[in-house]
Design a protein around this nucleic acid. Structure first.
Ligand SMILES: [Zn+2]
Length: 319
DNA sequence: CGAGTTTGACCGGCGC
DNA sequence: GCGCCGGTCAAACTCG
């Protein structure tokens, strides 16, 4: 396994670098006449200086943009390589190994449960990444686990919620009707089962359960896709959901912080999250899993990132 | 009174 | 075949 990819920690995806200082953006660029028609007026020297400064800034920003683009290309390329290696490894399994690893649906479910357990018990949220990068005697099996995780058309979302809020209600933009609750074997916190309130015309279900170790973290598993729009009119909720749907086809894991849910989104926190190592790890993990399934990965990722950045910019602008 | 929630019963798949 | 477990059903209940 190529360790270079994982070793390049913390995956220096400096998403904010291209934005530069905010004032460089908020000042409108000089128009053509200001740049080129200045005569021998007293203001000329100052204008020229301003113009050259602005041009310099513009050039710098263009360079940054170019660099970001190249970085993105590089990551896409690396993830393609990664995917190829996963496929190669899978192909090299002998039939006997295959039978040992995925002999029956039950065994497959075991593997899934195993993963979920790790997920539930790991507040640092590096589950698959950690499992995947550790080269161990069972690395082939973990490779299969990775594949198992991205196979189903279900999406796991790990949400940070207010620890004081003991309910399992997640405002994701859709309306849900609870149809069951169960205490599962590996988690003392009950698991709640929800159906979309548009059922039976909409088949979507979700499971919500708190993490074993960190009860402020809840894990939401969505199954299926909605065949209708958002009933909710909340912009914030819908933005959250659009982030989810952008990734829903790839069976990826998404981390969302809902601590500020109900009030104004915490911009600084969101911004910090983008730069946060864990967030980046999750992001790149998403990139990897998205690539293995979704040819339109770049579009989805770009919209997810730009959505997050736009959210920050627009909310900062409102301050 | 209707819609949504709670909760014990039930069911099917699986391992032993 | 039996017991375990996750998932679902549906009657009873609650709330607006
Ligand atoms: Zn729906």
């Amino acid at each position: 396994m190529d360790k270079a990819w994982s070793r390049r920690s913390p995956l220096s995806l400096e998403l904010t670098v291209g934005l530069g200082p905010v004032d460089a953006i908020s000042h409108p660029p000089p128009n053509e006449s200001e740049l080129h028609t200045s005569r021998f007026s007293p203001k000329r020297a100052r204008d020229t200086q301003q113009a050259s400064e602005l041009e310099e800034k513009l050039t710098k920003m263009n360079e940054e943009n170019k660099r970001l683009g190249e970085m993105l290309d590089k990551y896409i390329e690396e993830n393609k390589t990664l995917r190829n290696k996963i496929e190669v490894r899978t192909d090299h399994f002998s039939p006997s190994e295959d039978q040992q690893n995925v002999a029956s649906p039950a065994k497959r479910r075991r593997i899934e449960n195993d993963l979920t357990m790790k997920l539930n018990g790991n507040p640092r949220r590096e589950t698959i990444d950690e499992t995947f990068r550790n080269e161990s005697p069972t690395s082939q099996e973990t490779c299969m686990k990775f594949q198992e995780e991205i196979k189903p058309k279900s999406t796991k979302i790990i949400m940070q919620t207010d620890p004081n809020d003991s309910s399992l209600v997640v405002k994701d933009g859709y309306q849900w009707r609870k149809y069951g609750q169960k205490v599962t074997r590996d988690n003392p916190s009950p698991r709640a089962y929800f159906k979309c309130s548009f059922a039976p015309s909409c088949p979507v279900k979700k499971k919500v359960q708190r993490s074993v170790e960190d009860k402020s973290v809840i894990i939401v598993t969505y199954e299926g896709e909605h065949n209708h729009g958002y009933p909710s009119t909340s912009l914030h909720e819908n933005r959250l959901l659009s982030c989810y749907t952008a990734n829903s086809t790839s069976g990826s894991i998404i981390t969302v912080d809902l601590t500020q849910q109900g009030s104004k989104p915490n911009v600084e926190k969101a911004c910090r999250e983008i730069q946060n190592q864990e967030f980046q790890t999750v992001l790149v993990k998403q990139m990897a899993s998205s690539l293995t399934k979704d040819p339109n990965f770049t579009t989805a990722l770009a919209s997810a990132i730009s959505g997050k950045i736009f959210e920050n910019i627009s909310d900062v602008g409102l301050e």
